[in-house]
Structures are given as C-alpha cells and as structure tokens.
Computed example of a mutant assay.
Amino acid sequence: MLDSPWLKSSFSEDSGNNCVEIASTGHHVVLRESEDLSRTITTGPRAFRNLLVGIKADIIGATHR
C-alpha cells in the first residue's frame, strides 16, 4: 500500500472512474486506472518524465499539422 496520495487529472469525469491516477513512492512512480485499482504499473521517475514529454510533444505536433 502506498503512503502517498493518488492524484487524478483535473480533466477526469465527475464520477472519477475514467482516468489514470498516479502516485509517487519517492523512488518510483505508480500508475493505475481508476476502474481497476488493483492493477498498477510501476516505473522510474525518468521514464515517466520521458513518457510525459513524448505525449506533450505529440499533442503539440498534432495541433500544428
């Protein structure tokens, strides 16, 4: 169990059951889908940052196409 609170995007639905949640253990970033809280993915902070940078680059690139 994590001591850190799970964070949800401000873009989540009002019900809160259609989003990805993240938490930090200090050394790892943990992700889960709000519809199945028992399934998690754990990664390092650098890999998570690279994921976010890639997503943002794709979104920005899509707006300029």
Rank of each mutant, 00 (worst) to 15 (best):
L7C: 09
S9N: 08
W6I: 04
A62F: 04
G26W: 07
G61T: 04
L31W: 05
R65P: 06
C19H: 00
H28F: 11
G26V: 07
T43A: 09
R46S: 12
W6G: 02
L51K: 01
G16A: 12
A47V: 10
F11T: 08
D58G: 12
T43I: 10
H28S: 15
I55V: 15
A57D: 12
R65Q: 10
K8E: 03
I41H: 04
P45T: 08
E21D: 06
D58P: 00
K8I: 02
L52F: 01
S34T: 15
S34V: 11
F48D: 00
K56G: 06
I60W: 00
N17P: 00
F11H: 12
I41E: 02
A62L: 12
I55E: 01
E35A: 14
S38Y: 08
A57R: 12
N18I: 02
N50H: 01
E33H: 13
D36V: 13
I22R: 02
G26I: 12
V29C: 06
P5V: 14
P5M: 13
P5G: 09
C19M: 07
W6T: 01
R49K: 09
N50M: 00
F48L: 12
M1E: 13
I59H: 11
N18L: 05
E33I: 07
H27Q: 14
E13N: 14
I22M: 10
E33A: 09
S4A: 15
S24H: 11
I55K: 05
R46M: 10
I22Y: 01
D14Q: 14
G16Q: 07
S15D: 14
N18W: 00
G61D: 10
S24Q: 09
G61A: 14
F48E: 06
G44F: 01
L51I: 07
E21S: 03
A57S: 14
R65D: 09
F11K: 08
P45G: 04
S9K: 01
L37G: 06
I60M: 00
I59S: 08
N18S: 13
R39K: 15
G44W: 05
S9Y: 02
I41M: 07
N17W: 03
S15K: 09
D14A: 15
G61S: 11
H28A: 15
G44H: 06
S24A: 15
L52C: 15
R49G: 11
V53R: 04
E33C: 08
D3T: 15
H64L: 15
H27G: 15
D3M: 12
R65V: 13
I59N: 01
C19P: 05
I22L: 13
T63N: 08
S12R: 02
T63D: 07
S10L: 10
K56P: 05
F48Q: 07
V53T: 10
C19R: 00
R46V: 14
I60Y: 00
L52T: 11
E35H: 11
S34P: 07
A47T: 13
R46A: 14
N18C: 06
N18H: 11
S24N: 13
R39N: 12
D3P: 03
I55D: 00
A62G: 01
D58C: 06
R32N: 11
T63F: 03
D58F: 05
